[in-house]
């Protein structure tokens, strides 16, 4: 986990997490809190990727399985160990992302454009220590978690 601690480098700082086999970079500006796994209350008729509604820090937060977002046709993921709470820049709406592991904060300089067909909240791809990761846009993710 020592590869994601480059907060002092060039580029925007991102919180590097892993969900399933995919590494993701979440802008630190959008990250509000990393917490242990929460126990959301599932909402009737909700999509499988929406794990439910949980209370974090006294606020109701919708929790989404990040792995289900990245691989919608794959099998439902296992219970995630961590939940990363992201928010809009104005702090109005928060969203919980269930992930497996959080590596730390890293600065990403060089990045390339997303592949054709990627969801709109996947805004680019980069590599740290030779490992590829996808860069998420928290605003778009909160606005349209389904990625449609």
């Amino acid at each position: 986990m020592g590869e994601a601690n480059r907060t002092g480098g060039d580029g925007e700082p991102f919180l590097v997490v892993r969900s399933g086999g995919q590494r993701c970079a979440i802008p630190v500006a959008a990250a509000r809190l990393v917490t242990r796994k929460v126990t959301p209350t599932r909402l009737p008729g909700s999509a499988p990727r929406l794990l439910g509604l949980a209370q974090v820090g006294g606020e109701p937060v919708a929790v989404v399985d990040l792995h289900a977002l990245l691989d919608p046709i794959g099998a439902p993921g296992a219970a995630r160990d961590l939940t990363v709470v992201v928010r809009r820049a104005d702090g109005s709406v928060s969203l919980g992302l269930a992930v497996d592991e959080a590596f730390g904060v890293a600065a990403i300089g060089d990045r390339r454009a997303p592949d054709p067909g990627d969801p709109p909240w996947l805004v680019g791809r980069a590599a740290i220590d030779g490992r590829e990761l996808v860069i998420l846009d928290a605003e778009r993710l909160i606005a349209d978690p389904g990625g449609s």
């Binding site: 002092g8 630190v28 990393v34 917490t35 961590l82 959080a102 730390g104 904060v105």
Partner: peptide, 27 residues
């Protein structure tokens, strides 16, 4: 502690230049 360090790193990153030293501690 790890989670606490991550949150500290997030807070340090959010603090910009003022949070660099705190970020080092958090790391």
């Amino acid at each position: 502690t790890h989670i606490l360090a991550l949150n500290a790193a997030i807070e340090a990153a959010a603090a910009g230049r003022h949070g660099d030293r705190f970020g080092v501690v958090a790391e």
